[in-house]
């Protein structure tokens, strides 16, 4: 574990203080267990994600990356502190309110098992809107699907799609409802580098061309290089951030963290 003192505890300095960002945390903490067995998965995190920004979260295994994402997405609840999405305080919400918020304002891409096996690609993509009882923007769907390069596979079920295709479907689903924020937890963790490059390029395009906001957890420096900035977590604390990262710079910084 790193003994490095945190260089900065306040991330999101690329924006003026007047813009708190589309999502931010205030002193977010998440402890598991208690007493001697207590694990501080998040230990006082203040982070902010601005609209139209592609952020990568990096850090050693067990550093709290997934926990941070889960807490910000309302999948997990903080031990203390607050999470705000689009101006609303998640910590005050009921399970149902958080579910509706996820459905209406957030998108998700997981590392695997992203799709409902009984639904075909198109049905999976529009699932959140169907759940909300809403229609979807067909033109936007076509654009998203065309951008990801899924066109002719839309009527196939997940078991008829390759891992890369499945992740494209997942990314499309996350984007098609034009959410305020997309969370992606190691979206390319199971893919070969060519496929993962394609998907990451698409995600970046979604941010640049389609004005989406994406937060992505990754272990891969070359994946992080697609982001506007990288945030480094160690032991549940933000230890650093890097703007306009390159994979070499990230790799170098990781080495300092790793030891």
């Amino acid at each position: 574990m790193s003994e490095n003192p945190p260089k900065s505890q306040t991330a999101g300095m690329i924006r003026p203080d007047s813009d708190p960002g589309v999502a931010y945390t205030e002193n977010a903490a998440r402890y598991y267990g208690s007493g001697a067995a207590e694990v501080r998965a998040l230990d006082g995190v203040d982070v902010s994600f601005g609209s139209g920004e592609f952020t990568a979260i990096m850090g050693p295994s067990g550093s709290g990356k997934s926990t941070l994402m889960h807490c910000m997405a309302g999948l997990d609840t903080l031990t203390s502190g607050n999470v705000f999405i689009d101006g609303e305080d998640l910590t005050a919400m009921s399970d149902r309110e958080r579910t509706l918020l996820r459905r209406d304002k957030l998108g998700f891409v997981f590392q695997a098992f992203n799709l409902v096996p009984t639904l075909n690609a198109r049905e999976n993509i529009v699932l959140p809107q169907r759940l909300a009882g809403r229609g979807h923007d067909e033109a936007w769907l076509d654009e998203v699907v065309a951008t990801v390069g899924l066109g002719d596979r839309l009527d196939h079920r997940p078991n008829e799609l390759s891992g890369g295709q499945q992740q494209r479907v997942a990314v499309s689903r996350a984007l098609v409802s034009k959410p305020k924020l997309v969370f992606a937890d190691e979206p390319t963790g199971n893919l070969d580098s060519t496929t993962s490059d394609e998907i990451l390029a698409f995600m970046r395009r979604a941010v640049d061309d389609l004005a989406q906001t994406i937060v992505m957890v990754t272990h891969d420096p070359s994946a992080a290089a697609y982001a506007h900035r990288v945030i480094f977590l160690v032991d549940g604390k933000i230890v650093n951030e890097m703007l306009d990262p390159t994979s070499d710079a990230v790799l170098d910084h990781m080495k300092t963290l790793g030891n």
């Binding site: 997405a73 999948l75 399970d95 149902r96 579910t99 509706l100 996820r102 459905r103 209406d104 998700f108 997981f110 098992f113 992203n114 799709l115 409902v116 096996p117 699932l127 959140p128 759940l131 909300a132 689903r173």
Partner: peptide, 15 residues
């Protein structure tokens, strides 16, 4: 796992 996914993307417990 699938149910977890459904809940994550916005299916309410009631649904």
């Amino acid at each position: 796992r699938e149910l977890g996914l459904l809940r994550a993307v916005g299916m309410t417990a009631r649904q």
